[in-house]
Amino acid sequence: MGRWVPGARGRLQRAAMELYAERGFEQTTVAEIAARAGVTERTFFRHFADKREVLFAGQEQLSELVVGALTDAPADLSPLDAAARAVEASAELFGERPDGPRARQAIIDAHPDLRERELIKLEGLAAVIAEGLLRRGVPTAAATLAASSAVAVFRMGFERWITDDGDDRGLEELIREALAELRAVTR
């Protein structure tokens, strides 16, 4: 494949996911991912810091989407409702079918260091939401609590989405359902 053929990042992601599924995460090397994608290792490292980051690509895009939704949320929403609206907006990044996210999550769940990386990324998302709430004038403690709660609601909705086979509900609906359950628990 030519050096400047477009779509290298997407090919690398697909190749990595295929290899992780076939051989396992730990047994897969960057060289194998690059070879399957038809690029050099150097090209791999232009797109990803390491083979773990293939699984976590898109964090910046997610943060931008969440911040945009939070910025656009009506001013009269409570901090929790504004934060929940922000994480609901994330559903558009994941698409309608959970097959890809389900495969990704299975790889992450099988490796403690990947689970740790996932938690760090989620904590980063909570920090981004809290910063957005602070810009809305929400006090620090309330912003932090609302942001962390919204991320917990997102996680519950996401877990249901990727595990509920045959359930036609979308991620956004499952996030709303998790928020309703949080509200019921705190009454």
Rank of each mutant, 00 (worst) to 15 (best):
Y20P: 10
A126V: 04
I175Q: 08
A146T: 05
R3F: 12
L65R: 15
A57S: 15
W4S: 13
A126I: 11
G132E: 05
A106T: 10
V5G: 01
G124E: 11
D76F: 10
A152Q: 14
A127T: 15
E172R: 15
R135E: 11
P6M: 11
V5A: 15
E26F: 02
A146P: 08
G24S: 01
I129L: 14
A16M: 08
P101G: 01
A86K: 02
A184Y: 03
F45D: 13
D76I: 03
D72P: 02
R11F: 11
A16F: 10
R14C: 03
L77F: 10
A178R: 04
I120D: 09
I33S: 02
I108V: 15
R176K: 10
R183A: 14
G95N: 07
V39R: 06
A34Y: 03
D99E: 08
T140V: 13
L77T: 06
I175A: 00
V66M: 12
P101R: 02
P6A: 15
R160W: 12
E60V: 13
H111Q: 13
L179A: 07
F94R: 05
A73S: 14
D167N: 15
G157N: 03
D81Y: 05
A21I: 03
R169A: 13
F154K: 01
I162E: 07
I120N: 07
R187M: 08
E53M: 08
A31V: 03
D81S: 14
H47G: 10
E41N: 11
P101N: 01
K51P: 10
R155I: 07
T163I: 00
A126E: 01
A91V: 01
S148Q: 14
R97K: 12
M1Q: 05
R187C: 06
R36I: 07
R169K: 12
L93Q: 12
K51H: 06
A21D: 05
D50Q: 00
A150V: 12
I120G: 05
V87K: 06
E118K: 12
F158V: 01
R160M: 04
I33F: 00
Q59N: 09
A21F: 03
H111P: 02
E96P: 12
A73F: 06
T71N: 01
V151G: 11
L77V: 03
T43K: 03
E159Q: 14
I107K: 08
D167C: 04
A73P: 09
L119K: 15
R46F: 15
L122Y: 04
D76T: 13
Q13E: 10
A143L: 09
F48Q: 10
L19A: 12
A37G: 11
A147Y: 10
P98Q: 04
F44Q: 09
A75C: 10
T186F: 12
F154A: 04
A142C: 05
F158T: 00
I108C: 11
S90T: 13
A103V: 14
T186V: 13
G170C: 02
G124P: 11
L125R: 13
F48V: 11
G100N: 00
G132H: 11
R85Q: 14
